[in-house]
Design a protein around this nucleic acid. Structure first.
Length: 586
RNA sequence: GUGCCUGUAGCUCAGCAGGAUAGAGCAACGGCCUUCUAAGCCGUUGGCCGGACGUUCGAAUCGUCUCAGGCACACCA
């Protein structure tokens, strides 16, 4: 379907060409002065210098040649703006086309695969607030990609293969020296590991702390990492158990956030690609030894800053994250043939990924036409501007954060005396949805790449530009439609806008395609949030201005109901992309 | 030291393929519930867009410099 901007631009491009000007000046944009017009074309001013004519003159000339059929108003204003107002019929036509299309009239790509790497949790470490962003931004961009026609594949890329595993094994050995898993000569079956996630969560911090002060301990952990990566039987079995316990816990937590992955691959899954890959690097002369380690040069002459070589094998023979990241690229290229691999990872890993990408291209792991993109996100800081910490200085676990926000949502329900007809169980479920919406919307509305201040109180206020506002809008529209159905009212068809609000809503919705594509090319859901809010805000005004169910004129009532249905569908699409669940009532 | 990111209202943030009066939300103040969920709606107050210079008919937006904060710079991920 042709989008409204493309349609209008085409009309003006034709007019510019008809007057002997370049086509590019005909670009039509959304007005930045909604009080004056809906759309504008500024090409006359841009072309003034080139054609040595006054902008006003060009604008007038172009306007004479323009097809004015779709417009209510085409006006030339000093110093050379062309202001446009569409006929209501045109707006309605575009909205109806969207409403009648199951894909909302969006432009879609076909036959393209995008791999989205997000989540990135570590085995045996609890999810904390820092993991929130990667998970929900990645999930949202993945869903957006699907809506835009891509085959989108999410891969969690578990941190399950590095030194951390050696540290965990070493600490486990400290606590369970008799364990069969550690016995090199044991060749029988292993008992399932009877430790809880909470136990596991204790192990890593202790090991990490000790490794920083105890060199001998660190050496053992390095050795354990090496042994694991080289397939020591007991360690492998122990590792599998730890992964099993961890992944079950991770899945439960991600599920609460509506985050799901097509693949639960870990760094370890790239292991089988590593030997061949390294051998090839050496054979083709890309990799060489430096200070005992194996490295690949990735510096380019145009680099402004020194670019260190990538380490693909440590001096002790162990793999490092560049190794697994490279091997993972190899795996993804082989299995998925993507045109794009997007990484939603903390900004601080930017240099690392730049190195990995350069290495992947240099060694031919990926061809030039495949997009490898690091889409970093900023740090969630506390009010003091430092990374967010709990009152006692610890890292806030994601689970605790979710519990806090959802408890506040439940409190709010009591306070507002809503959901009285719901059972305790349903109330809790609703509070969970409301709380999660607050958390997710509050995070997603911040531009991806920027650090932002995490304010728990703000997440729990539920007023204004928040997730609960979005849900509230949807719930109220839903409620009208449900009641209309009960009363046996007919839902009509969309009609010409009768009020400013209706016109504005329709205008907003017919620009959805542009907004979605912009958000996707930014790899940033914040644009979706903003658009959803603006539509919701208009919807609330519409709700206030019209008494729909008591509307006596049957035809008008049908139109209003159709309008509710249309807006509701569009708002739900936005929530679907943001992966925010909507309750029936709240 | 070098590189990258950020600096917009009291607070949190949009706007940055240059365009006509810089927008929201929160906070503050004032209105709107016998009628579809007031977690809502309407209004008022609040800004030399860090600073300087430059490019341009036009700069929050582009360039250079500068100040302030954050982050990263091979054997952690």
């Amino acid at each position: 379907m042709k989008t409204i901007i493309a349609y209008l631009s085409e009309i003006f491009e034709k007019a510019f060409v008809a007057c002997g000007y370049e086509k590019e000046y005909g670009k039509v944009t959304v007005s930045n002065r909604p009080d004056l017009c809906q759309f504008q074309c500024n090409g006359a001013m841009a072309g003034a210098k080139r054609y040595k004519k006054s902008p006003l003159q060009i604008a007038q000339e172009v306007v004479e040649h323009v097809d004015k059929a779709p417009f209510e108003k085409v006006e030339v204003v000093a110093p050379g703006f062309i202001n446009l107002v569409l006929k209501d019929e045109e707006i309605l036509k575009a909205a109806v086309a969207i409403h009648e299309d199951k894909d909302f009239g969006l432009n879609k790509v076909s036959d393209e695969t995008v791999v989205v790497d997000y989540g990135g949790p570590n085995i045996a470490k609890p999810l904390h607030v820092g993991h929130l962003r990667s998970a929900i931004i990645g999930e949202s961009v993945k869903r957006l990609a699907k809506v835009l026609g891509y085959r989108a594949i999410g891969d969690v890329h578990l941190g399950d293969w590095g030194l951390q595993m050696g540290l965990i094994i070493t600490e486990f050995a400290e606590q369970n020296p008799e364990s069969k898993y550690l016995d090199d000569r044991y060749d029988g079956e292993y008992e399932p590991l009877a430790i809880s996630m909470d136990d596991l969560n204790e192990i890593y911090p202790r090991a990490s702390k000790r490794s920083k002060v105890d060199e001998e301990y660190m050496a053992r952990a390095q050795q354990a990492t090496f042994d694991l990566q080289h397939g020591r039987r007991g360690y492998m079995a122990l590792w599998r158990e730890i992964v099993r316990i961890s992944v079950a816990d991770l899945k439960a937590n991600y599920e609460k956030l509506n985050v799901s992955f097509e693949y639960w691959y870990g760094e370890s899954d790239s292991e089988k690609y590593i030997p061949d890959m390294i051998a090839e690097f050496i054979e083709k002369g890309y990799a060489y030894e430096s200070e005992g380690a194996l490295v690949v040069d990735v510096a380019k002459p145009e680099d402004k800053a020194p670019m260190p070589p990538v380490l693909v094998r440590k001096s002790n023979g162990s793999q490092i994250y560049a190794t697994t990241d490279l091997a993972t690229i190899k795996q993804r290229m082989q299995d998925f043939h993507p045109s794009m691999i997007l990484y939603f990872v903390d900004n601080r890993q930017g240099l690392h990924f730049e190195q990995v990408f350069r290495c992947a291209r240099k060694t031919g792991l990926v061809s030039e036409d495949v997009v490898l993109e690091f889409d970093g996100f900023g740090t969630m800081n506390g009010k003091d501007g430092k990374p967010y910490k709990t009152r006692d200085g610890g890292v806030m676990k994601l689970r605790d954060l979710i519990d806090n926000v959802c408890a506040a949502a439940l409190e709010k329900m009591e306070e507002a005396k809503t959901g009285l007809e719901l059972s305790e169980e349903e109330k809790k479920e609703t509070a969970l949805k409301v709380g999660i919406s607050a958390l997710k919307f509050g995070d997603l509305i911040n531009y991806r790449a920027k650090d932002y201040i995490f304010d728990l109180d703000k997440f729990m206020s539920f007023e204004g530009k928040t997730g609960p506002y979005m849900l509230y809008t949807i719930v109220r529209l839903n409620s009208i439609l449900t009641k209309a159905k009960e009363k046996g009212f007919e839902i009509g068809t969309l009609g010409l806008p009768k009020t400013d609000v209706e016109r504005e809503v329709l205008l907003k919705t017919i620009l959805m395609n542009e907004v979605f594509w912009q958000a996707f090319s930014d790899r940033a859901p914040s644009g979706i949030c903003e658009n959803a809010y603006q539509i919701a805000s208009l919807a609330n005004r519409f709700y206030y201005e019209n008494k729909i169910l008591s509307e006596e004129n049957e035809e008008r009532r049908g139109e209003l109901l159709a309008f509710c249905e249309y807006v509701l569908r569009i708002l739900k699409l936005h929530m679907e992309i943001l992966a925010i669940d909507v309750p029936e009532r709240m």
